[in-house]
């Protein structure tokens, strides 16, 4: 039964795919759609959130923008969405294609909301060499460096964490690395909580300061495990620093095993149950021993009678 379902499903898939592949000749974008404008401005913040959306939804097929490492799909491979050849198109055209889909390119009409789609386009546009007006995060030019160091400073007064990213140039000078996104994370019971906010890019001094949330619980002393990393491993490889910071709200953890309860250990059994059990056992067995004691007297009673 299961096999039949599998076979029909594969047949169906092959059929629909081949139909769509055959029809996947060209995109025809209506003229009106081409003229559609991006309503969002080209801020670093928008570019950054566009990048996040891109990494989650598009990177698996299209690869990193400008790196030409897309999936080699047949018959038409996904384009490098950071290439100049692609960015020739208007925002409206890209928007239309993302909504429509074509062949192996899925439609995002319902899977992404409008804002997210425009954010992705903003991000892609930041690679456009012809659009000088936009702030381009990818354009921040850091010198080629080695021995990249990430230093953390925890400020208890202002309750903030600051990080400093530096590297050593070929000439041997340590310089600040700017425009690099960092992720600030706090360890919780299940995984990490990201506290970076939207604009976690290093400035000209390679510095960045992030306020620590005032209501985040720590352990008894207020300790929390802090983890800071360069978000994109593509730049300098994996660079992470972790630190125990005393920035959390000191909290006494409640261990449910500490109270007297049904689920507790024997030592933490509810008093009433210990009393009932021990009391019951003692009273029944004391009567049993009383009877046994009386039993020993039985032979003596025979003698006294005679």
């Amino acid at each position: 039964m299961k096999n039949i379902i599998k076979i029909t499903a594969s047949l169906f898939l092959i059929f629909t795919l081949s139909v769509s592949v055959v029809s996947a000749q060209s995109w025809s974008v209506p003229n009106l759609s081409k003229k559609k404008q991006n309503p969002y401005d080209t801020s670093t913040k928008n570019i950054s959130s566009g990048k996040k959306i891109y990494n989650i939804n598009c990177k698996s097929c299209h690869g990193d923008a400008t790196m030409r490492n897309m999936l080699p799909l047949q018959p038409v491979a996904p384009s490098d969405l950071g290439s100049q050849a692609f960015l020739m198109q208007t925002d409206g055209e890209i928007y239309y294609k993302v909504n429509k889909g074509n062949g192996a390119m899925p439609t995002f009409k319902k899977t992404l909301n409008d804002e997210s789609k425009w954010m992705v386009i903003t991000y892609l546009r930041s690679f456009d060499k012809n659009k000088k007006v936009s702030k381009k995060i990818a354009e921040v030019k850091n010198p080629e460096v080695s021995d990249v160091k990430l230093l953390l400073d925890i400020n208890k007064e202002t309750k903030s964490v600051s990080a400093n990213l530096t590297g050593v140039t070929k000439k041997g000078a340590r310089v600040a690395l700017q425009g690099i996104e960092l992720s600030f994370k706090v360890k919780r019971s299940f995984g990490y909580l990201d506290i970076s906010g939207n604009d976690a890019y290093t400035n000209e001094q390679g510095m960045i300061e992030i306020p620590f949330p005032s209501d985040l619980p720590g352990d008894r002393e207020g300790h929390v495990n802090l983890l800071v990393k360069v978000t994109d491993d593509a730049y300098y490889g994996e660079i992470t620093v972790d630190r125990i910071a005393t920035l959390g709200v000191p909290t006494d953890p409640e261990n449910p095993l500490d109270e007297r309860a049904m689920w507790g250990t024997r030592a933490n059994a509810p008093i009433w149950i210990i009393v009932s059990y021990v009391g019951g056992v003692l009273s029944i067995w004391s009567i049993i021993f009383l009877v046994l004691f009386q039993l020993i007297k039985l032979p003596k009673l025979a003698k006294t009678e005679e």
Binding site: L295, L298, P299, L301, A302, K303, T304, E305
Partner: peptide, 9 residues
Amino acid sequence: FGYINTPSQ
């Protein structure tokens, strides 16, 4: 138990 059925036993 040395029982001989005396009344007290």
